[in-house]
Design a protein around this nucleic acid. Structure first.
Lengths: 209, 209
DNA sequence: CATCTATAGATAGCATCACTGTCCACTTAT
DNA sequence: ATAAGTGGACAGTGATGCTATCTATAGATG
């Protein structure tokens, strides 16, 4: 197919397809002449995937390129793919490791070892979590630390379900795509459900319509 | 105190403080002359809060202004504050309500009524969730729908814990600040814990170090 | 075969966002 | 007296995610 059909099938404007191709989110079409190229189903799929990551998952173009590349790239193990997907998903930023930060770090490590989690110290989510907890403490909202236990427990249960589901897929390729898609979109799903549940619970407790 | 001290105490550069003041995230200092103003502890607190929402919670300047304003603004009820905080927290975007979308919407409403949640149809998280599910289906990852049940259940339990915690605070002001802070930062905390748990679970199942 | 539309690739332009820097006429501190 | 700090206005900056335009060509249609 030509680019117009690719655009029609995916709903992505042609200039944006060109942009994504330049940025490496989508591979270029197979050239058939100096100004002609053909696209196939793999392009359709890849483009849809790219759009989903960017629009729904909220990934930056750079992050989306990273996860898309590693998903279909050289044969990494599932665990390696997860690690790199998580790395790509987490915005990096430099931090100042003051006293409050180190205390929060110790608390995170306590939770992790308490639950028997085996997690690399370089996992970027660890840093993000420590930052969030340190901020909470600096603001004097220490009481929220009490619900970290339930939060961690819930996360653990959900992770078990997710992995079980992924393993049901026969092919490695399907597992990897599922991993990438769900790592990115699952966050949105979980966040939304949490907000809905909060409103429901707040209505139950405070509300009196 | 003068602006230099405000900057020192919060770690926010002076030009940024001026910018935040212009944008309404922080109230202006109390004027004592044509080019002099004084700041107090309320400014320190407000500025720290603003920074936390922007840097850790990832809110835009406009969203941060909204939640900060409603937090200390005219006396809204807890429920109203939650609603507006959620509204400010969710990026709005226009959507196309095609067949897949409507089907996803029905599924979301089914989950909500199944759990007996009372949720306004206008809750922005509802739209976000529907979008995410529709995208998942368009990509052919329907099997993830199976874990929506556990996800919703987890969200419900967490929401109950959060509200219980908030209610322990005596003053309405504390409740509202906690609500805003935790609505924004809790998302980061939960997302991080989920990623950590995923790595731990993946290591347990796939790993063989 | 003429003509019209479509195309690839290159380059430039645009809008938004979150700052950051500069300037001025002033205080305030030493 | 002099140096440093200040509030406010406004301009500039760098990153990001597109869009628009241009050119030389290719395919589609009468």
């Amino acid at each position: 197919m030509r680019i117009a059909e690719l655009s029609r099938r995916t709903g992505v404007p042609i200039p944006t397809i060109k942009y994504y191709t330049r940025e490496g989110l989508v591979p270029p079409g197979e050239r058939t002449g100096p100004n002609q190229a053909r696209y196939d189903e793999t392009h359709v799929r890849r483009l849809k995937l790219a759009r989903a990551l960017v629009e729904v998952g909220g990934l930056s173009i750079a992050s989306a390129r990273e996860v898309l590349t590693l998903m279909s790239g050289p044969g990494l193990s599932t665990l390696e793919t997860l690690g790199k997907a998580q790395y790509a998903l987490t915005p990096r930023k430099e931090r100042t490791e003051d006293e409050t930060w180190r205390r929060a770090a110790a608390e995170v490590d306590a939770i992790v070892s308490e639950r028997g989690w085996q997690v690399r110290e370089s996992n970027p989510a660890r840093g993000t979590l420590i930052d969030a907890l340190a901020t909470l403490r600096r603001l004097g909202h220490d009481d929220f630390f009490e619900i970290l236990g339930p939060y961690a427990e819930a996360a653990e249960r959900l992770a078990a379900d997710e992995v079980k589901l992924l393993m049901r897929r026969g092919d490695l390729e399907g597992v990897l795509e599922g991993l990438v898609v769900w790592t990115a979109l699952g966050e949105t799903v979980l966040a939304s459900l949490r907000l809905l549940a909060e409103e429901a619970e707040a209505t139950r407790v405070f509300g009196a319509f």
